[in-house]
Design a protein around this nucleic acid. Sequence first.
RNA 1: CGAGUUGACUAGACAAUCGCUGUUUCGCCUUUGUGGUGGAAUGGAGGAAAGUCCGGGCUCCAUAGAGCGGGAUGCCAGGUAACGCCUGGGAGGUGAAAGCCUACGGAAAGUGCAGCAGAGAGUAGACCGCCUUAUCUCUUCUUGUAAGCGAUAAGGUAAGGGUGAAAGGGUGCGGUAAGAGCGCACCGCGCAACUGGUAACAGUUGUGGCAUGGUAAACCCCAUCCGGAGCAAGACCAAAUAGGGAGGCAGUGGUUCGCCACAUCGUGUUGCUCGCACGGCUUCCGGGUAGGUCGCUUGAGAUAUACGGUGACGUAUUAUCCAGAUGAAUGAUUGUCCACGACAGAACCCGGCUUAUCGGUCGACUCACCUU
RNA 2: UGGGGAAUCGUCUAGCGGCAGGACUGCGGACUCUGACUCCGCCAACCAAGGUUCAAAUCCUUGUUCCCCAG
Length: 138
Amino acid sequence: MHVEQKDGQDSPVDLIVDRKQFCFQRKLRLTKPAEFKRVFSNPLKSSDRYLTVLYRPNKLVNPRLGLAIPKRNIRRAKDRNRIKRLIREIFRTQQWEIGSFDIVVIAKPQANSCGSVDLSESILSHFKKLWLQKACDA
RNA sequence: CGAGUUGACUAGACAAUCGCUGUUUCGCCUUUGUGGUGGAAUGGAGGAAAGUCCGGGCUCCAUAGAGCGGGAUGCCAGGUAACGCCUGGGAGGUGAAAGCCUACGGAAAGUGCAGCAGAGAGUAGACCGCCUUAUCUCUUCUUGUAAGCGAUAAGGUAAGGGUGAAAGGGUGCGGUAAGAGCGCACCGCGCAACUGGUAACAGUUGUGGCAUGGUAAACCCCAUCCGGAGCAAGACCAAAUAGGGAGGCAGUGGUUCGCCACAUCGUGUUGCUCGCACGGCUUCCGGGUAGGUCGCUUGAGAUAUACGGUGACGUAUUAUCCAGAUGAAUGAUUGUCCACGACAGAACCCGGCUUAUCGGUCGACUCACCUU
RNA sequence: UGGGGAAUCGUCUAGCGGCAGGACUGCGGACUCUGACUCCGCCAACCAAGGUUCAAAUCCUUGUUCCCCAG
């Protein structure tokens, strides 16, 4: 945890915000089991038919995304890949709208049966909720 | 041109923008580290990546030991690192043909199993039958050692009927009281010799005379092969926490001071037994969870050519490096075109098999029709 | 990702080549003034597809689904 805070302080924040780039690098992801555990332990929830989104404010300037697509819910590897790509792409394009949150997206079995349009709308609505929360906090 | 068989190849294309990730390289920052960050170049899922059904490499474990047990394979020859795979051949089945399919060793080594039905289910058997003889009853007329119907008894049979999944060679002729491999011919089967073939096997000739039914994906026998676990294997760096790891010596009795014998339970050796190792004391020092690094992609590689081989494949030369992530990369948006895009996503790596699959391209062959 | 196991009426289970049995549930009846308990009867299944066998839930092969273990 200590290390991450440091990173946040040191990163050249203003530079990136000015450029408004839509990259999706390693620091925008949850990488370690401990980080995942932190989100799961005391989360705020938002869910619908397709997805459950757990989130928690972090102390960084950027949001971070973690994906949990269980094999139990979505059986075939190609479908799991498709859903992951979809979520990642939307996160990438919307990352400046979302505040400083650690987000874990969990897929439900229905996520496979619906089309990609429905799924992307669902993701967008979840992220909008986050944005509203950020506004309230502000 | 139609119907079919078979062997290969392919798996939307192009352009723009925004992204992910490996490698190389150039800047900048820096806590100087295999760091962070920005740019450039370049690479980035499959024919099945899947199932995990086989085989191998690689790594560790154990005295990589022995025996028993267990498992796998099963026509012959070859290929291969190896295989349960492939190629060629044989045999059997199937199709009009090209072709396709086959767990295809042994039932005269042994033990079993076959419910019900049926006379009888494996040292065969006799229900209805057929035939003979004896006795009895009756009928006929030629009045008999007659012929015939029926009953009983004693035999001979297995042609026919019936049972069953299966009834102890098949068909025909002779033969007979009726029958029967009883005899003969052909077919099948067994044995022997010869010929061809590396062999499986095939052919020819002779001979036997039915003896040898089915089931081995029942036990089993024969031949060949198999130690176990798996990259979450394993190696290294290392907060925390906990006490461990390596080397040396040996208890009791005897003693010729070299050694020998005894003690005896537990644990391990992933089925069992034998065998083997560990346990006590002392000396020395590191130990290794979170996390990270390596293993991690140059290989029984791929491409092309030549040669050898019927072929699987092998040999030689040439040229080349072709995913390597670690919450896990190939996507998104827009435009154009068409046949409107199936099955589906690498996680240590190869060789197969099996299963899923919208289509497209090329080659070879068979049959039918038409034209010449 | 690797390894291991299972599948039998609606549910839980027995069955190791020869008619698939039991319990609970369901339905019908009996008992009772009625209900429960009890008794009797009925319905209902071998995960799928091939193969071996005269005969397969059982033996073999392939597939499907589910569960467990290793962080």
